[in-house]
Structure formats: structure tokens, C-alpha cells
């Protein structure tokens, strides 16, 4: 039996990697922070919950359905709200407030849906529900502990192959790098953006349906994760999908591990500050490293700091020697 915090870390980190990947895809294309992204996660949560409680379909089987629903909602939001507004020349702040409006509207829709579930199927806890029992265990550990990281690996690999090995993926990269130039070359940039939003919504909903296998969900279940999702994307630099995956892993892992250490050392009262960890990481990243982890040129950083570190150490060594001589 593996310790609880290890499995927590694995599930949390993988799911936030998946969510941050999707958010970064939407940010890359439209350059607007999508505040409604958390609601795409909630779509997955409710798909898993409703299908499990009414049809006894386990969340692994319903994840593809969640993927489709989230993807369709995401595309609808892009075409129905953001594209219309940006064509009318809306400012960045106007687009941001529009995404917040979409999030609020989604919360309303989930509220109505949960009322419907209560009325139709007598599910009294449909506004806030406990985790769905996992359908299989392996070596005494719940299945999601394996499925979440494997899904993240598959998705990242698939996106990597799509972007580097397929013609459409190259067109996608071109559209993100320089839309005007891509248009000149005959790429339908709009279609590329729609596809990016399709994938983003799908990944969000998929991770939402896995999320409720581990933690409780509810009407604002996804919206409440927005702190972690944005922190992960910002840590990744908002410009690189691999950076986002890395950011998600770091955020998820540090949230669980730091909280675990703090709980052991300081007592149970630190539990509520758990969400402060991603927030602090986000603030520090924005102030110190605004382009994120992927902007660091690791090789150059290490090579360039090495000589100065060596000379510092030498100076320190000599001053200690001098002090020792004076002392004697």
C-alpha cells in the first residue's frame, strides 16, 4: 500500500498538467485568459457524476463523452462569444470580462442541471457530491492513480506528434507564431483556432471526469480550481504547452507535498492555506520570471553562473584563510 500523499501527488499533478495544457492552448490562440475554463472541467465532473449515478457507467467509460461535451462547449464559446467580440474590435479587458460572464452562465446551467437531476432521479446531493468510487484497483491502489499520469503522457505525446509530425500541426504552430504570415501561405487560421479550442475543452472535461474519482465535485467545482490552473499555465509561461504540463506537475505536486509537510510540522490549521501555495508560486513567477519556466535557458544559466560561483568560492576561501591567520 502506497502512502496517501504519494498517490495524492500523482493524481493532482497529472490532472493539473492536463488542465494547464488545455488552458495554454486557448491562450496561445486567442491571447485572452479564459476565466470560463474551470467550467469546462465542471462539464466533465457532471458528465461523470450523472452517467455513473443514473446509468452506472464508470467515469473511465464516460470520459470520451465528457471530452466531446467539453470540446463542443468550448468551441461554442469561442465561436459564439469570443470571435464575435474580437471581430467587433473589443479590448482585451472586454474579452476577459466576457469569459467571466460565460463562466457565470455555465454555473447557472450546472445549477439548473443539478436541480433537474434532483427532480428526475432524486439525487439529493447533486450540487456538491462526494468522489465516485473507482471501478478497479491495481496492487491495492485505486485505478485513477495509474490512469491519470498515463492519460497525461498519452495526451502530451499525441499533441507533440500532432504539432511536429503532421501537416496540420505545423499549420497550427504557424498560426500561433504569426497569423498574418500563415494566412498568406493559405492556412485557414480560423479553423486552426477552432480546433485548438476543441482540444482544450476536451482535455478540461476529460480531466474533470477523472477528478471526481479522487476528490469531490460540484457546481463550482471547476471554477474553484482556477487558481491552480492559471498558476500552472503562468509557471509554464503561457506560451508553451510543454511548459504548461511541467507547470501543472510542479503546482499539483508542490500543493500536496508542501501542505503535507506543513500539516505534519505545524498542525491541521494550515490545511486551509493549501490554495495559497499555487497563488504564491503564481505571484513569484509573474514578478521574477514573467515568461515562465520554459523561458530559462538552462544551459546558458548554468554555464554563465559557474565561473562566477567558482570565483566567489575562491574569494570566500581566501578571506577565511586571512581571518584564520589574524586569529592565530
Amino acid at each position: 500500500m502506497v502512502e496517501a500523499f504519494v498517490t495524492d501527488t500523482i493524481v493532482y499533478a497529472s490532472l493539473f498538467g492536463l488542465m494547464a495544457l488545455g488552458l495554454t492552448l486557448t491562450y496561445l490562440t486567442t491571447k485572452v485568459p479564459n476565466f470560463a475554463y474551470g467550467s469546462f472541467v465542471t462539464i466533465g465532473m457532471y458528465t461523470a457524476f450523472a452517467l455513473y449515478r443514473t446509468q452506472k457507467i464508470n467515469p473511465y467509460a464516460s470520459a470520451p463523452i465528457a471530452f466531446l461535451l467539453g470540446a463542443v462547449a468550448s468551441v461554442a464559446m469561442y465561436l459564439g462569444v469570443l470571435r464575435i467580440l474580437s471581430k467587433r474590435g473589443s479590448s482585451l479587458v472586454a474579452l476577459m470580462i466576457a469569459t467571466l460572464a460565460v463562466d457565470i452562465a455555465f454555473v447557472g446551467i450546472f445549477g439548473i442541471y443539478s436541480d433537474y437531476l434532483t427532480l428526475r432521479y432524486a439525487l439529493i446531493n447533486s450540487k456538491y457530491f462526494y468522489p465516485i468510487p473507482d471501478s478497479f484497483t491495481l496492487f491495492g491502489t485505486a485505478g485513477i492513480v495509474y490512469v491519470a499520469p498515463i492519460s497525461l503522457c498519452i495526451v502530451t505525446l499525441a499533441v507533440f506528434l500532432l504539432l511536429t509530425r503532421s501537416k496540420f500541426g505545423v499549420a497550427m504552430r504557424a498560426s500561433v507564431e504569426n497569423p498574418s504570415l500563415a494566412r498568406v501561405l493559405g492556412i485557414n487560421v480560423e479553423n486552426v483556432y477552432v480546433f485548438a479550442w476543441f482540444l482544450a475543452g476536451g482535455f478540461a472535461a476529460m480531466s474533470g471526469s477523472y477528478y471526481v474519482l479522487w476528490l469531490p465535485g460540484g457546481i463550482t467545482g471547476g471554477s474553484n480550481l482556477i487558481v491552480e490552473i492559471f498558476a500552472a499555465s503562468v509557471l509554464g509561461g503561457l506560451a508553451s504547452i510543454y511548459g504548461a504540463v511541467l507547470g501543472g506537475l510542479v503546482i499539483g505536486a508542490s500543493e500536496v507535498l508542501v501542505t503535507k509537510v506543513a500539516l505534519d510540522r505545524l498542525g491541521s490549521w494550515v490545511g486551509i492555506y493549501q490554495k495559497g501555495i499555487p497563488l504564491i508560486i503564481m505571484v513569484v513567477t509573474l514578478l521574477v520570471l514573467p515568461k515562465g519556466l520554459t523561458s530559462i535557458n538552462w544551459r546558458r544559466t548554468l554555464v554563465s553562473t559557474y565561473p562566477s560561483v567558482r570565483s566567489e568560492l575562491r574569494r570566500l576561501y581566501h578571506s577565511i584563510l586571512k581571518l584564520a591567520r589574524i586569529g592565530s
Binding site: V81, I84, L85, R88, S90, A94, I97, A98, A101, V102, I104, A105, V107, G108, I109, G111, I112, D115, Y116, L119
Partner: peptide
Amino acid sequence: IDVNWLEYIMFAALLIAILAIRP
């Protein structure tokens, strides 16, 4: 259903409509 939810959707739609029609 709880009418509050309709209120959420209504005002969200109102905001998006203003942004589109008369920003």
C-alpha cells in the same frame, strides 16, 4: 428549478450582448 440560476444566465447574456452591441 431555482430561479437564481436563470438570473446568472440572464445577466451573463446581458453583459455579452452589451459588449457586442454597445461596448
